[in-house]
């Protein structure tokens, strides 16, 4: 049992984690690098009179320029993260694979419970639905209260946000589980569980004092949700595929 669980979770976590990391490095990490230039003050947003018109004059030029600046800056020893270049890329891949492997272990534990309780037989297609549930619990619904944030964004205290995030993820999973597993009208209590953290409300800062341009932050937030959705679908499909093969014999 433990072998089936770990084998399917490790396989799915590794493969989906690599897909997620590739998309992150292509679509998200360049925006993080650019935002760090604003965070460190190497670039300023509207604070100097000339910066804004200059940026608006040639948007694509300005963008390319900022991106290549980011690269140089990292090599020059921008110490925000203590790592740069290749090391930083490798650490991002490793931690993304670790995170998705963690998600996969939790998901296959759910598969085993659902099959053990006779609720459903897991197929790759079923796995994709579980992937959507995972996406809803970890990214989609938390985004209603806390937008995916770039470095240099203003935000409330970290512990408060982490607590709200964990509560939202747990209640969303419980709510989805209740709606999927229970046949009686009690299932609609699941909607209440999902809504609860949003009624309660996410912690927000007193005012908005972030130094990162809102255009950059908006693009980042949108891309995070797309990348997360794709990665979670891949994770669910792969976990369902590997789990159904592991338990078929």
């Amino acid at each position: 049992m433990l072998k089936s669980l770990t084998a399917s979770a490790l396989g799915a976590g590794l493969a989906a984690g690599l897909v997620a990391a590739a998309l992150q490095l292509l679509l998200l990490v360049p925006l993080i690098g650019e935002a760090e230039l604003y965070e460190s003050g190497a670039l300023t947003h509207f604070s100097a009179g000339e910066a804004a018109p200059h940026d608006h004059a040639g948007e694509s030029d300005g963008h390319d320029h900022a991106a290549s600046d980011g690269h140089d800056h990292d090599h020059a020893g921008h110490s925000h993260d203590g790592a740069s270049g290749f090391d930083r890329t490798l650490l991002t891949i490793l931690s993304t694979v670790a995170t998705y492997t963690g998600f996969a272990l939790i998901m296959v534990a759910g598969f085993a419970v659902a099959e053990g309780a006779g609720l459903s037989r897991i197929t790759p297609r079923q796995g994709m639905l579980w992937g959507l549930a995972g996406f809803a619990a970890t990214q989609f619904l938390p985004a209603l209260g806390l937008a995916p944030e770039l470095p240099g964004s203003g935000a409330a205290a970290l512990e408060a946000r982490q607590t709200w995030w964990l509560m939202t993820a747990a209640l969303t999973l419980a709510g989805i589980g209740l709606m999927a597993a229970v046949k009686s009208p009690l299932r609609y209590a699941g909607i209440l569980l999902i809504a609860l953290p949003h009624v309660f409300g996410a912690p927000h800062p007193e005012g908005y004092a972030g130094v990162t341009p809102p255009e950059l932050a908006a693009l980042f937030a949108a891309r995070v949700l797309v990348v997360g959705g794709v990665a979670w679908l891949a994770l669910g499909w792969l976990a369902g595929l590997l789990w159904s093969r592991e338990t078929a014999s």
Binding site: Q24, L146, E149
Partner: peptide, 12 residues
């Protein structure tokens, strides 16, 4: 170590 992936997965 996990900085960029935390931002990219939208953890606080």
């Amino acid at each position: 170590a996990a900085h960029d992936s935390r931002h990219a997965i939208s953890f606080p």
